[in-house]
Write a protein that binds this DNA or RNA. Sequence first.
DNA 1: TCACATTTAATTGTTCGCAATTGAATGTGC
DNA 2: GCACATTCAATTGCGAACAATTAAATGTGA
Lengths: 152, 152
Amino acid sequence: MARKSTAVDPLRLDNQICFAVYSATHAFNRVYKPLLDRLGLTYPQYLVMLVLWERDDVPVKEIGEKLFLDSGTLTPLLKRLEAAHLVRRTRSREDERQVLIALTPQGHALKEKARSVPQSILAASDCSVSELVAMKDEIVALRDRLNAVIGE
Amino acid sequence: MARKSTAVDPLRLDNQICFAVYSATHAFNRVYKPLLDRLGLTYPQYLVMLVLWERDDVPVKEIGEKLFLDSGTLTPLLKRLEAAHLVRRTRSREDERQVLIALTPQGHALKEKARSVPQSILAASDCSVSELVAMKDEIVALRDRLNAVIGE
DNA sequence: TCACATTTAATTGTTCGCAATTGAATGTGC
DNA sequence: GCACATTCAATTGCGAACAATTAAATGTGA
């Protein structure tokens, strides 16, 4: 039998969890797009705003740690948020290396407009909250194991 | 009680499955990077090669449907694969609008070097195959429900 | 104190990802 | 057969994402 069953072929696209995750990310993005367009945000910008709505006046570094992004991504993104008058960027006075990101009143106010987003996503997921929470926890656990490998 | 429990705050970053998926995608990418560097491929290029290793001489459209990507992404990517002598791009003679993508001998040969990749990912996942398969199936089902909403 | 390493953002260059548009080839309805 | 719509890839422009480098501020050890 030269031919392996496709069900267990490890190089088969449909068998790869990473492609499942990769394509699910894009699917989420496409669902979010029209919702976030109304807020004038892209999805990564929305993530930064979520961080800031939880805690304001945060160094770039800390945003990067929470979102797993580096300054190469965040610096231009934050400049766009600043250009949209949603955040202000100021050097920390205690440590001049740090740039602190603070919400403007408009940035704060946007939170109210964002409140309807999660329930729209929940509806699109067509799934119970408890199922989604369970999946989320599994995926986070997998992500953390992968990230642990990267740090050797 | 003005303050909601953070455990159920729908705008909280840690409660969002989409962020779990988004950050897991990046974690996978970082694990794949050193493995794919040895093949001279990026992750999206690797996905295209997976499609071609399953079936050769495929129109761009079909690759796009399998990977959920459009020509704006695929055209330059395929040109880079062509520049790397892994694929050839030819207009279909039956339908001159279509561009068919075929593996070169080098593109075919690369499959052997790629065989070790999935098991490295499995090891990094630190998880049983059956657990991964179950997660994959759940994520694919969620992705498909999300994609169904997009098409109205 | 002073040389040296570390930390932090910013910058540069390459590659995705997608919306919107273009242009050529094909299909269709009359 | 001919106007019309549709299909398909390519193109353009913008916003991530990240590696690698730079530069400034800070910390550390002798």
